[in-house]
């Protein structure tokens, strides 16, 4: 009995539910941006959100680390559980939540600080380093994972805002992974990157999957197919279809998914 339980866990090990959303609705004032979305996101998996522009991918992503709290007119209903804990509960501290659920924003937003300070920002406020050497190591590791170390290692103390758009985006990725989040939300992380940097970021995503759960919004079907195991298709605020990436791309159930993937909606 005991053994069986263990075996069961081992087999479904990669399929543990990390995030579970139930009946999530988001309103921006009168506008109903997310309609009754329920989804279960597995641990140690990459989940891709795809869908036409304005369908609510970013909005739903922002629910997962409660970034919608910062928008006055936004109202969220429903429940989102991370590791079984309901994060929509007002008693949950969004600050702690966000330390655990990192985010890379759609538009690169480096702080007007040096490259080093940008990356060191999170580790510093969470007290992750004991001394300067520690911090240096954390920063270097994060920049390497962000696939930008080689480009900036000689100019760590120059401002992060002086980098090119694509470099800024990778800096933001490095900044987000530096705090070692358990869940990483990435909103179109490669929209400003060239193919080489994109490949590096995709490699990073694959690496992160070993330990974390990654949710990525993307407009590139190829990217979704390459990096993700699960895919959710959003359309006009509804989550139309959710399932194994392979299945969504080869054999979608809903005609809307079909048309989007073959390029007819969007």
């Amino acid at each position: 009995m005991e053994d069986m339980y263990h075996m069961d866990r081992a087999m479904t090990g990669t399929q543990d539910i990390k995030i579970s959303a139930r009946d999530v609705n988001v309103y921006y004032g009168e506008k109903h941006a997310i309609k009754n979305v329920s989804v279960e996101i597995a641990d140690k998996t990459v989940t891709a959100f795809i869908g036409p522009s304005g369908c609510g991918k970013s909005t739903f992503l922002r629910c997962i680390n409660r970034m919608n709290d910062t928008i006055d007119i936004a109202r969220v209903t429903g429940n989102i559980l991370i590791d079984g804990e309901d994060i929509t509960d007002p008693r949950v501290d969004p600050v702690q939540l966000r330390a655990k659920v990192g985010m890379v924003f759609q538009k690169p937003n480096p702080f007007p600080k040096s490259i080093y300070d940008n990356v060191a920002y999170g580790p510093k406020i969470h007290g992750m380093s004991r001394n300067k050497t520690d911090l240096d190591e954390i920063v270097e590791r994060a920049l390497r994972r962000g696939a930008i170390w080689e480009e900036v290692k000689d100019r760590l103390h120059e401002p992060g805002t002086g980098l090119s758009g694509g470099q800024q985006q990778r800096l933001c990725i490095a900044r987000a992974v530096a705090t070692e989040p358990e869940v990483l939300l990435m909103d179109e992380p490669c929209s400003a990157l060239d193919p080489i940097a994109t490949a590096q970021v995709e490699e990073l995503i694959d690496e992160l999957r070993q330990n974390y759960s990654v949710v990525i919004v993307t407009h590139s079907m190829q990217q979704a197919a390459r990096v993700s195991q699960k895919t959710a298709f959003f359309h006009l605020g509804d989550m139309v279809e959710y399932g194994e990436t392979d299945k969504i791309f080869t054999n979608p159930e809903d005609p809307r998914t079909e048309s989007y993937i073959s390029g007819r909606i969007g």
């Binding site: 970034m67 600050v95 939540l97 966000r98 330390a99 985010m103 924003f105 999170g122 406020i125 987000a176």
Partner: peptide, 11 residues
Amino acid sequence: AMRDGSSGLGA
């Protein structure tokens, strides 16, 4: 975006 970036890191 600066505020979002900072609070998104758990500040």
